[in-house]
């Protein structure tokens, strides 16, 4: 089991993930943008359009404006998720020294590791609470439940499992895995010289469920990560207006 999950499955997982995402994006590029369906008020320029997209992503502006009860779950969920993914990549790769590497004069190596640990634990807990809130919301709020299918709940349970295992590893010393152990293992995968998983059932299951998430990713609503851009590219774009002023009229618009 461990050998499969740790040394064979990851290659299938990445192939399915990358291949699947590429395939879906290609399927989104085949159909044309047939008509101009931009929303108004139109952004004045492409810079303004892109700024609008960035603004939407940065604070989930529409959700903040139009469904605050959703925002208090959705925003911390995504903010923590991004912090966790970034933290995994940087923390594991640099063994927790990323802050020291970014600002060596301000942050000592020890401080960096301490910060990594603190942020990781905090974000992990924020994420868990957010998932629980969103799950509770999906069960109890009529309008959300009415449009949900089983998979909408299952996604949340999967995330709960992944985050639960991750937090457990953080908070329970016996279940801990060090940065070094994790990096050694990941390095093996990336260099096509897979090594055994760290001796930790929680790590294995955490790793397994993350791979499940990656496998279903291209075949689910998780593609909204890309969908955001594909849709906003169509509905938030500048429009060149015709100038007012009627040729031949006795009264003309003066500047």
């Amino acid at each position: 089991m461990e050998q499969f999950v740790g040394q064979i499955m990851p290659y299938f997982t990445v192939a399915i993930f990358l291949g699947g995402v590429t395939w879906r994006l290609w399927r989104w590029m085949i159909p044309r943008i047939m008509h101009n369906i931009t929303l108004s008020p139109f952004p004045g320029t492409w810079t303004a359009a892109v700024t609008w997209w960035v603004w939407q992503i940065a604070i989930f502006w529409n959700i903040l404006k139009f469904d605050r009860a959703l925002w208090i779950g959705a925003f911390p969920f995504h903010a923590a998720l991004i912090a966790i993914i970034a933290g995994h990549a940087m923390g594991i790769y640099t063994l927790g020294l990323q802050f020291h590497m970014i600002a060596p004069l301000l942050v000592s190596a020890d401080l960096s590791v301490w910060l990594s640990d603190l942020l990781g634990t905090t974000m992990g807990l924020v994420f868990l609470v957010a998932v629980l809130y969103l799950l509770y919301r999906r069960f109890t709020v009529e309008k959300v439940r009415a449009i949900s299918s089983t998979s909408d709940f299952l996604h949340l349970f999967l995330l709960l499992t992944i985050a639960g295992l991750g937090n457990y590893m953080r908070l329970v010393p016996d279940a801990h895995t060090t940065y070094l152990e994790a990096r050694t293992f990941m390095a093996g995968l990336f260099t096509f010289n897979p090594v055994a998983l760290p001796q930790n059932a929680f790590f294995m299951w955490h790793f397994f469920f993350v791979q499940c998430l990656m496998i279903i990713f291209p075949f689910s609503k998780l593609m909204h990560v890309f969908g955001f851009f594909w849709m906003r590219w169509m509905v938030n774009r500048p429009f060149k207006e015709w100038a007012p002023g009627m040729p031949g009229a006795k009264v003309q618009v003066t500047k």
Binding site: R24, R27, W28, M29, I30, P31, R32, I33, M34, I37, N62, I63, F66, D67, L70, A74, V141, K143, V144, I147, S148, S149, D152, K221, M223, H224, G227, F228, W230, M231, M234
Partner: peptide
């Protein structure tokens, strides 16, 4: 196969209920 707004809307709704 023809209308991108259709495909993108079909595939990216996360059922948030907003």
């Amino acid at each position: 196969n023809k209308l991108r707004s259709f495909v993108v809307t079909m595939e990216n709704c996360v059922k948030c209920g907003l």
